[in-house]
Design a protein around this nucleic acid. Sequence first.
RNA 1: GCGCUCGUAGCUCAGUCGGAUAGAGCAACGGCCUUCUAAGCCGUGGGUCGUAGGUUCGAAUCCUACCGAGCGCGCCA
Length: 584
Amino acid sequence: MKEHIIGLIESAIAELKNNGTLHADTDPRVSVENTKDKSHGDYASNVALALAKSAGKNPRELAQLICTALPASDKLEKTEIAGPGFINFFMNSDSCFEVLNTIFTQSDRFGHSNVGAGKKVQVEFVSANPTGPLHVGHGRGAAYGASVADLLEAAGYDVHREYYVNDAGRQMNILAASVWLRYLELHGAKFQFPSNGYKGGYVVEVAEALKASFGDKFIHPIDAVFDNIPADEPQGGDKELHIDALIARCRELLTSEGYKQVFDQGLNEIVGDIRDDLAGFGVQYQQWFSEASLAEDVNRAIEKLQSAGHIYESEGALWFRSTDFGDDKDRVVCRDNGETTYFASDIAYHLNKFERGFEQVVNIWGADHHGYIARVKAALTALGIDENKLTVKLVQFAILYRGQERVQMSTRSGSFVTLRELREEVGNDAARFFYVTRKSEQHMDFDLELAKSESKDNPVYYIQYAHARICSVMRKLAEAEYQWTEKDGLAAIDALTLEQERDLATKLALYPEVLQAAAINHEPHQIANYLRELASDFHTYYNSNKVLVDEDAVRNARTALCMATKQVLLNGLKLLGVAAPSEM
RNA sequence: GCGCUCGUAGCUCAGUCGGAUAGAGCAACGGCCUUCUAAGCCGUGGGUCGUAGGUUCGAAUCCUACCGAGCGCGCCA
């Protein structure tokens, strides 16, 4: 419809150019927007305002000229000039309810588009270190990323969802050592657990699984384990040196084969747990990408940068001159001990992404990683890849409240609130919805009490209830032994004469546009807000008008409007990963 | 100190490409169940869009400076 109006205006402008009213070179993009106020019609355009200056006419006069030059349209009831020179377009009733036919025809694909044109896009999200269960902070990235991916798919992109598993590096070694020490405890060893080790209860569970799989295989006398290990922090030593020495001892005593078994036990148990957790949250991936599998790519990436002249050596380390590409400082890619850095892996990973043929890459990161964007983009540019193909979306942390009271989270103590606990407490639907109801870069307060409440305060229930109400009407319709088909409904569409019916249909017609904007801007909250408005319009209508009236035409038409609403609610909720219950 | 993300009603937040009188929900107050689910609906009040300049027909939106909040600034991941 909007395109239709743009077309009308464009041909009007073309005509004004022909008769010399407008300069031939004036070629502004025609802007048509949805009106906020119904008295302004259904659509409005500001072309006259935008062109007034170059045409040397006042805006209202020019608007009048454009209006007279508009070709006739059977979709419009009238046009008006208003305010400083806006042109308002009023749709006629038929074109207003055309959308019902479209919705029935396209059903679960209503709102989908092909703006993505099958472009391959990768969405990488969550990617939390597999050193422990996901906590509530990861939940927001999970809900957001999953919805963004679904939105892009609905917009015609070929979407690949990926989780980058940080299965290399020091943190994982600390986990392996922690698992092994807990395993020794299970076999009766007594000692002070390292202050920098992973202390969460899940480590003990992994140790138990290790014991179940391998029995006594990894037992060593505790004196041998702690012999000549530098003191831990509580004993006046350095906690980093202490844990590093324990890792080295672990490798030494278990040999590389045994160490790998312990390491893999931890990795697999925890990745498995994360995978189950996310699956329970309705979040699925096409691929779980292992950092460790990049080993060769890392060297290749560094060599590539080297041959392009972007690497130099200093203080025994290899540095990437990222300052040439807008970064604050140069970055080490290979340490003086010969080990490559995490950043080097990340360069390789991003190179790998583009080598796999993704035309667009979307990374969803916690806001604390924002300092990383510049260097990754610098690396891409240095590798000859257009940095604009990478979009990084930052997700701010959610602060949990229980009513007025802030819920404290502390990772160190191991007593943090896990995503799983959150899901069990408030339910998947409320959690998914609440996480995406605010724009991602906005700080968010997450009130557990509100998310749990089954009342009108809770927007999730409000929207779901609208869907359930329509399902209920359909059950009543069947009980009353009325017959209804989409065809009957569409045939009776003239019976929709109320203003509220028109408002509701107009809102339905807006959905494809909202979906497209939400997809392009990676903003699922637009869907959440839209659904709330749609539910509100529906409740208003439903409350003041009976659907199942005796008169066949009115009943059939209203039922059609309800069914169309039901479809759009369902489509929208699905994109947010929220269920659409048929009764509540 | 430098950088990133922000600052909109008492609270939580929308506000799309710069458009008309800045919107929702909650909270507050007042109404509506004999009727398809009251998990709902209707109404009222509530604003210096952090501050000060600038850009223009027009600024919550764009630019600059400042104030305030959070985060980041490692040969950790």
